[in-house]
Design a protein around this nucleic acid. Structure first.
Lengths: 127, 127
DNA sequence: ACGAATTTGATGCAAACACATTTAATTCGT
DNA sequence: ACGAATTAAATGTGTTTGCATCAAATTCGT
């Protein structure tokens, strides 16, 4: 039953995949070549720049749509590059607080116009 | 200027990322645990099962939204698992034809209901 | 027709990912 | 209050990915 509804779902999913690939690919290419940032790095920077100053690991994991382990290494990379800082969380000493460095904020603000321009170019109106 | 339009674009992109992650993650999990297939493997099988019988590498690359090298290795993996066959292309002997094996068709048809069910569960109506 | 440029698919390689496990700190149950 | 269960983040490991490159085949320009 509903062979037709299935076809609709598949078309929808195909569209979602295609749009995601187009935007993600363009962002990856431009952010990397112009600012030395990956898409995940930028998403993390944006979360840190616009949310509360300090951010628990789990919140960052949600924001970047990666696994916990990938997020941990993402933060490690960004810390190595001087974009973020890790601080022990006093209330729960298992956890960490991640925060932007000045350099991180600067890089985010430099990359932001590029990011928005790519979105404008590649995001079609049919969502 | 158009700080507001930017915000709209960003919201749209965030939505796209979140939907993609939700559907892709659920598909990956279920297809893997129930049928031993990744999302890319399934997309390749579907392309081969529904399009022309034989398929050039480049068409497959478009279908799965991967790089050329990743697609080449995807085909190699699937051939190793007996899901597809590679044949030399007579007209252009640089190229290959990829085609489904019986086992590949069987696995596709087994996995298809699961795939459709996950789409129904996770694809929301707001596209 | 013939050498240069292009195209197709494969592969070496390093980076990034997910899964499973580990360590340390907190919470829960009794 | 104290041991068991849970949670947070880090890390070992194998797989997958993209980039750059390569070899082989075709196409293009003259």
């Amino acid at each position: 039953m509903s062979e037709l509804a299935d076809e609709g779902l598949v078309r929808q999913w195909r569209g979602l995949l295609a749009r995601h690939a187009a935007v993600f690919g363009a962002l990856e290419c431009e952010l990397q070549s112009k600012h030395g940032l990956g898409v995940s790095e930028f998403e993390a920077l944006e979360r840190l720049a616009t949310g509360e100053a300090k951010c628990r690991g789990a919140e960052l994991t949600d924001a970047v749509h990666l696994s916990q382990s990938a997020t941990s290494r993402l933060v490690a990379r960004m810390e190595r590059e001087g974009l973020v800082e890790r601080a022990m969380c006093e209330l729960d000493r298992r956890g960490i607080f991640v925060s932007l460095t000045e350099e991180g904020l600067r890089r985010y603000e430099q990359a932001k116009p590029t990011h928005r321009a790519i979105l404008k170019e590649t995001l079609t109106f049919d969502d």
